[in-house]
Amino acid sequence: MTEIDIERVYDALATTLDSLTADKRDLFLAKIALLLAHELGDADRICDLIAEAARTSPD
């Protein structure tokens, strides 16, 4: 995936999240996570990525 591609995804996620009311955002993120996971089709890899995303960022 190129820089341009990932930016498009990033933008699409941001604009979709903004188009939703606050109470729908969690549900949307959960749904997109399931859809992407199903496309990726590698449960070990997905579980690693879940752990990665859960790591608290050093800010």
Binding site: L27, A30, K31, L34, H38
Partner: peptide, 17 residues
Amino acid sequence: QLMRDAALSLALRHPFA
């Protein structure tokens, strides 16, 4: 609850869910 609802709302169009 959130994951259950996500699965249910996807299920209409995605059999895997």
